[in-house]
Write a protein that binds this DNA or RNA. Structure first.
Length: 763
DNA sequence: ACGAGGGGGGTTTTT
DNA sequence: CCCCCCTCGT
């Protein structure tokens, strides 16, 4: 028996926790304690004697999964580790690896990210001789993606009359050919894209009833979080798996359905009652997060929406202050006002920066805030946008790691076959590709064939170089399966020549590229150590395992160490599931929010409205909404009026700032720079001095940086970023050397590639 | 093979 | 405005 966890729950929450038998729909409004309910529900199941590995809990983000696991663990302890809990993509990738042979895939299949998919599309368009301006990789890929989300395979697509007619109408009648070739290439490369993970799971369950039966039996209880975001492929997986035991519990909020662009069907949650006859419905309507003002204002936003489940969200908290509305002349000024206000709030109300968020509609809006926050020395963290794993140098390194595990991965191979340059040019690769296409096999395979059977298209000198590259890959293949992931990775970094290449570039960007690769290798280290702590000690954590994991990581998942106190800056989309005491919702202008792309249909506009709802309900204590009267777009100054959405909020909840009350005058909008003069002073009484002390301690040595030859095992060193440490080992020589350094009490061992950051700590 | 420079195109949101 | 792709010149 676990502690009296039911005590703190309200009636509806308790009902949702206890209804463990049969299908159940929990409509959980924003801030209604959803995670708590899910956590206790899992605890309840375990208490009833359900084995942890019989519980399948699906989420949409790794972060949500991780948080839930931690919270379950805090109630039930160790058994939480055995739960099948994760994102749809990661759970089914795991199952697919296990069952890969049934589908004709290797268990080590690669997962293509969106960039890989798009370059593959581009490549195919080129090969087919189609016009890349008509067949834009983005458009084509999203078309393929949509098809897969609706379980339309490439063969089904090519023989579906309606689809073909539709494509022809859009002047892209050849998409089916691209899709066919795309699917074939993925299979050849032993790769799946994001959508394949769901598609192939469905195919597995459709074509292999015995496999389906195994998992149906295993998963006696299924929970799905954010059910309003499921697409058809996900919906059907859940339905199939749940058919045997019928213990399917879905949790969601139709009012927060904001992902239709990636195939999410709000209908899935609206129709749940009819899909699962006799299901229990519980509505969590009390909001524990926000003030009454915020909750009421949020309700007024979506009140007009047609398609929704009736519910009344309410708060019993404080009335709270009114929503602040701030108008600015330019986006720079908007950023200035927000930053000034953040500084002020932090000072006056002693809040943490981590309790503050800036939310916007599009990633492109981040720049102005980034600059202003930096100028003011306010620590911040930008989520989304160009993620760490998308950077060129990181992708290059990952490509090498991927190749060591799956040499058939053509995308990875083409990426690094001539990086660093080894004299294999476009013409050679072109010929190679042709050979591969003709034989319907991967590039690597084709290279291997050259060993025994030379082809006339490729000159002997080129063949030699290709074989040299193949040998480089071959050298790591065996290790990759058996040796420690970190060891393999750092070996590859060295022998591939990537390190040398990066170190030869001493520009600022070059240095940061090296740093990123260093960071990546350290993340391998960290992963290995982390897994070793929780798992079986005997077996080494290998590269395939790491890669399987990293492919599905996003920027949101980067370890947020509790002690770093920064303002969060992100899109409204990525803020879902989070909460902050103080929220600045910015750029509330017509032409920006709602997005002009969405003004076509009412359903799209309803979704924009729900997005607005999501943004507002992130705030617990105070919400500030702002807009700029003009902003730069396409190099031109665009004039905007305040968003129509502002009119949806009942005016009684809004308090406009002084300048709003005066009314905005467009005649002043040509002023290029914000003048930190009178009007702003009320918001930011002290704008002149520099920000609070968040400076990192100065390097404790003024000595010269070490050179590779000076670094030896057991030596004490000081790293500019990580502080004092002790060198454990040095591998390689000269410019290729890598040092493994132990940085003290946290037991963090890191790989140091940049000796410029390392100082001697002797004496 | 590789760099610099020009031209064209794109900006919604993401597992 | 910025980013990416392509081309052209070495």
């Amino acid at each position: 028996m676990y502690a009296d966890y039911l005590d703190g729950l309200n009636d509806a929450q308790r009902e949702a926790v206890l209804a463990t038998d049969g299908p159940c729909l929990v409509v959980a409004g924003a801030g209604s304690g959803k995670t708590r309910v899910l956590t206790y529900r899992v605890a309840r199941l375990l208490e009833q004697g359900v084995k942890p590995w019989c519980i399948l809990a699906l989420t949409f983000t790794n972060k949500a999964a991780k948080e839930m696991r931690e919270r379950v663990a805090s109630v039930v302890g160790k058994p939480a580790n055995r739960l099948w809990m994760g994102t749809f993509h990661s759970i089914f990738a795991r199952i697919l690896r296990r069952e890969a042979e049934l589908l004709g895939f290797s268990p080590n299949f690669t997962i293509y990210d969106t960039t890989d998919s798009r370059t593959l599309v581009r490549q195919i368009v080129k090969e087919l001789g189609l016009d890349p301006k008509v067949y834009k990789d983005n458009t084509v890929h999203s078309r393929i993606s949509m098809a897969k989300n609706n379980l339309v395979t490439h063969t089904a697509y090519a023989s579906n009359h309606d689809v073909l007619v539709d494509d022809t109408k859009q002047r892209m009648g050849e998409i089916y050919k691209i899709y066919m070739l795309y699917a074939q290439r993925c299979q050849q490369s032993s790769a799946m894209d994001f959508d394949d993970l769901l598609l192939y799971t469905n195919i597995l369950f459709r074509d292999h009833p015995e496999a389906l039966a195994r998992y149906q039996q295993q998963f006696s209880h299924i929970l799905v979080d954010e059910f309003q975001d499921t697409n058809y492929a996900q919906y059907l997986i859940v339905k199939r798996l749940g058919e045997l035991h019928r213990n399917v519990c879905v949790v969601g909020d139709d009012a927060q359905s904001i992902y239709s662009f990636r195939g999410a069907e709000i209908q899935n949650i609206l129709n749940f009652q009819t899909d699962y006859p006799g299901c229990k419905i519980v509505k969590l309507e009390r909001n524990y997060r926000s003030t009454q003002t915020i909750v009421n204002a949020a309700n007024s936003i979506i009140a007009k929406n047609e398609r929704q489940i009736k519910k009344v969200a309410f708060s019993e908290g404080d009335q709270g202050e009114r929503i602040r509305l701030m108008g600015a002349y330019t986006e720079q000024e908007e950023a200035f006002m927000v930053a000034a206000d953040i500084y002020d709030t932090n000072l006056r109300e002693h809040c943490r920066y981590a309790d503050i968020a800036i939310l916007y509609r599009t990633n492109a809006q981040s720049r102005a805030f980034e600059e202003t926050l930096r100028k003011r020395n306010i620590p911040y963290r930008i989520f989304g946008g160009q993620s760490f794993y998308q950077r060129k140098e990181v992708k290059d390194m990952l490509a090498y790691l991927r190749l060591a595990v799956n040499p058939n991965d053509d995308e990875a191979l083409r990426r690094v076959i001539n990086y660093p340059t080894r004299g294999i040019g476009d013409t050679t690769v072109g010929h190679l590709q042709e050979l591969a296409n003709r034989a319907n096999q991967s590039l690597w395979h084709t290279i291997e064939d050259l060993r025994v059977q030379p082809a006339e298209a490729i000159k002997p000198t080129a063949v030699k170089k290709l074989l040299g590259f193949a040998e480089l890959l071959e050298a790591h293949r065996h290790n990759a399966q058996t040796a420690d992931a970190f060891d393999t990775a750092s070996n590859i970094a060295r022998s591939s020549g990537v390190l040398q290449e990066l170190r030869s570039d001493s520009s600022v960007e070059g240095l940061s590229r090296l740093q990123n690769v260093e960071e990546l290798l350290n993340s391998v280290k960290q992963y290995v150590e982390q897994r070793r702590e929780q798992g079986d000690l005997d077996e080494p954590i290998t590269l395939p395992e790491y890669l399987a994991n990293v492919a599905l990581l996003t920027d949101m998942d980067q370890d947020d160490t509790a002690d770093d106190d920064r303002v969060s800056v992100m899109t409204v989309h990525s803020s879902k599931g989070l909460e902050f005491d103080y929220v600045y919702l910015v750029g509330l202008e017509e032409g920006l929010f709602p997005s002009p792309m969405s003004s076509g249909s009412t359903t799209q506009l309803e979704e924009e409205r729900r997005l607005f709802y999501v943004a507002v309900t992130r705030a617990a204590k105070r919400l500030s909404i702002s807009f700029a009267h003009s902003r730069m777009q396409w190099g031109e100054m665009q004039h905007h009026s305040p968003s129509r959405f502002l009119g949806d909020i009942d005016p009684q909840y809004i308090e406009a700032d002084a300048r709003m009350a005066q009314g905005l005058r467009s005649d002043r909008s040509s002023r290029p720079q914000p003048a930190p003069g009178r009007p702003l002073r009320s918001l930011a009484p002290r704008t002149h001095e520099s920000a609070p002390a968040t400076k990192r301690p100065a390097p404790s040595t003024r000595g010269n940086a070490l050179s590779p030859n000076q670094v030896r095992p057991n030596m004490n060193v000081i790293h500019e970023r990580f502080g004092p440490g002790r060198v454990l080992s040095v591998e390689g020589e000269g410019p290729n050397a890598i040092a493994l350094v132990d940085f003290g009490p946290t037991g963090q061992k890191k790989l140091v590639l940049q000796y410029a950051h390392l100082h001697s700590a002797n004496q």
